[in-house]
Computed example of a mutant assay.
Amino acid sequence: MQKETYLGVDVSPLNYEEIIADLRGRMAKGEKSTIIAVNPEKMIKAETDADLKQLINESTYQIPDGIGVLLASKLKKGGIRSRVTGVDMMDRLLRFAAEEGKRVFFYGAKEEVVRAAKENIEKKYPTIQIVGYENGYEKDNDKIVRHIQEVNADLVFVAMGSPRQEHWIRENMHHVPATVFQGVGGSFDVYAGHVKRAPEFFQKLGLEWFYRLITQPSRFKRQLALPRFLLKILFSK
Rank of each mutant, 00 (worst) to 15 (best):
L155W: 06
K232V: 09
K143Y: 08
F229T: 08
H167W: 12
E171A: 10
A198R: 04
A225H: 13
G101S: 10
G193Y: 06
A37G: 14
T34R: 07
S187P: 07
F202G: 10
V176F: 01
N15I: 07
I214H: 00
K29I: 00
Q129E: 15
K102N: 03
E4T: 02
E138K: 12
L234V: 04
V151H: 05
M160I: 13
E4P: 05
E200S: 09
E122T: 11
E111M: 12
Q149E: 09
P126G: 15
F157C: 05
Q182S: 04
L23M: 09
G185W: 08
G108M: 13
E111H: 14
V84P: 04
D154I: 10
R164H: 08
L213E: 03
P13Q: 12
V176E: 00
L213V: 00
S12D: 10
W168C: 08
P177Y: 04
Q54D: 15
A198V: 04
P177H: 05
I35H: 08
S162D: 14
V131C: 13
F210D: 01
I214Y: 00
Q129K: 15
P199L: 05
N120A: 09
Y61E: 07
F157L: 02
A192D: 05
F210L: 12
T60Q: 12
H175T: 07
Q2N: 11
S82E: 13
I36T: 15
W168R: 01
N57Q: 10
S162N: 13
L52S: 06
D49G: 13
S162L: 10
A21G: 12
L14Q: 14
L52M: 08
A46S: 10
S59N: 12
Q2Y: 14
D51Q: 15
F201S: 08
I35G: 03
L23T: 08
V113T: 14
Y16D: 10
R219D: 05
R164Y: 15
F96G: 07
F202W: 12
V180W: 02
R26A: 12
F188S: 13
R212S: 05
V131A: 13
K139G: 03
T127E: 14
L234K: 13
F229A: 03
I233Q: 01
K76M: 02
A21L: 14
I214A: 00
R24F: 07
I80M: 03
F157S: 02
A72F: 07
R146D: 12
A28L: 10
A97F: 04
D91I: 00
L71D: 03
E119S: 13
F220D: 08
G206V: 07
I169F: 03
I80V: 11
M173S: 04
K196R: 06
A198G: 05
V104P: 07
L94Q: 13
V131P: 05
R115T: 13
M90Y: 10
Q165H: 08
R170G: 01
Y211Q: 06
G78C: 09
L230H: 06
E4A: 03
F202T: 05
R103W: 06
D154M: 09
M27C: 09
W209F: 06
Y125I: 09
M173W: 01
L23V: 10
P177Q: 03
Y6W: 06
R103N: 06
R170K: 15
K118T: 11
E138P: 02
M89S: 03
F181K: 04
A198T: 03
I130N: 08
F220A: 10
T48Y: 11
D91Q: 03
V11P: 00
A198S: 10
D51A: 14
Q149N: 15
V184R: 04
S82G: 06
